[in-house]
Design a protein around this nucleic acid. Sequence first.
RNA 1: GGAGAGGUCGCCUAGUCCGGCCGAGGGCGCAUGAUUGGAAAUCAUGUAUACCGCAAGGUAUCGAGGGUUCGAAUCCCUCCCUCUCCGCCA
Length: 434
Amino acid sequence: MLDAKYVRENTAAVRQALLSRSVQWQPAAFLAADESRRALIAKSETLKSQRRTASNSIGALMKAGRVDDAEAAKAEVRAINDEIESLEAALDSAEAALAAEMMVLPNIPSASTPVGAGEEDNVEVRRWGTPRDFAAEGFEAQPHWEIGPALGIIDFERAVKLAKSRFALLAGLGARLERALINFMADTHSRRGYKEWWTPLLGNATTLTGTGNLPKFEEDLFKTTDGLYLIPTAEVMLTNIHADEVLDAAGLPLHYCAFTPCFREEAGSAGRDTRGLIRVHQFDKVEMVKFATPETSFAELEDMVADAENILQQLELPYRVIELCTGDLGFSAAKTYDLEVWLPSYSDYKEISSCSNCVDFQARRASIRYRDNTAFKGTRLVHTLNGSGLAVGRTMAAILENCQQRDGSVRIPEALVPYMGVENIAKGGEASCR
RNA sequence: GGAGAGGUCGCCUAGUCCGGCCGAGGGCGCAUGAUUGGAAAUCAUGUAUACCGCAAGGUAUCGAGGGUUCGAAUCCCUCCCUCUCCGCCA
């Protein structure tokens, strides 16, 4: 959520900034609601002050035996109350209108974010690794949705039987590979100073609102009958851990990580990435979240990207780093880097991590502040950051495709071997523990 | 799920039966000052948040929401949460 006061005082700039994200924002409704809200508050509070004075006098009048005067005062207060009641009703609707407006306005892109209309205007920052030339190696690369079933480690058909389309079932070394990746990622981040958490997978509406998933993106979420939502990412839980809290500046920045399954409705993505593990309703992810001061948050973002890159490098997967342009930025983000891994089946790089600085946008929604008595009086909103480190399903797809061998087996990257207990996955190879 | 007890200012606690002088007392903690060579101890003062307002100041908040009343931390209702016991269960 943006700062209403800032929006009021910088309407043109905000409008322009949102335009750069292709959001056509008409400030009239906001300005009217904001103006009306403040006027109503002023009026209503003046009346409340009068009411208090009048009301307090009644006790004294009663004691003094001046019953008639007391009754007159009561009548006066009743009249004031009627007036307050109608003002408050108007105030409620003004505030509702204002909240409705503010809750669906996306964050303002950071000054450093490249301006652009959409995906095509994103800026490539750097590449790491070289995609294999399968033609030169003399065989044709298979997509992971062929490799997995062929090795007996992914079963898409039975997943559909058990749930519905866009679910996966892993078997044997496939299931172990999933666990190995999770443990490898979580361990690696822990060693680099991220505190690991284990969180609820269902969150209430307040929590989902804090990160910006509600109210605007409800159709992307699975919902339970008692009003809880399955988390679409651990970012929701990690960020809201400190909702309604005032953090001590001395403890900042906080570096958190968590492995969780993630659940997404994928409404509106019909026909996209229909095959394989790329776009499914349920996938695993190890997530990083940071809480930082405004002074350090952008440097923290660079470090977070490096932490995500470290995973890809250790897994020997070629990737590139993309900086999202204003038009492609997510709702809560002020600046975002995507990591895209090379996928032979797409003959292209495909998003595997997204690292964002949300500045104070989520902190304002969730009320996450910090205190630094040496630097300023009172409290300030923290900056929140989040990044995938990494999406596990897509990582598995990338390993299967990039590490496939002529004989149909898949070589396990060295860093993962201790977690897998085997050096490759071959057809008929059983997932026995050694 | 059943029965009972509770949720007050960072923490502990008073106030709730008998509604106004209660945004709310005390202790601890914390901050500043005095004292001291320095510290401890002691003493003094201060010590929530948000919103409206140029300001003075005002308004709201005693788990949340609603009700009664001129007036609610205090009375009534609903909900949430915590604790104890019982039941059930990985």
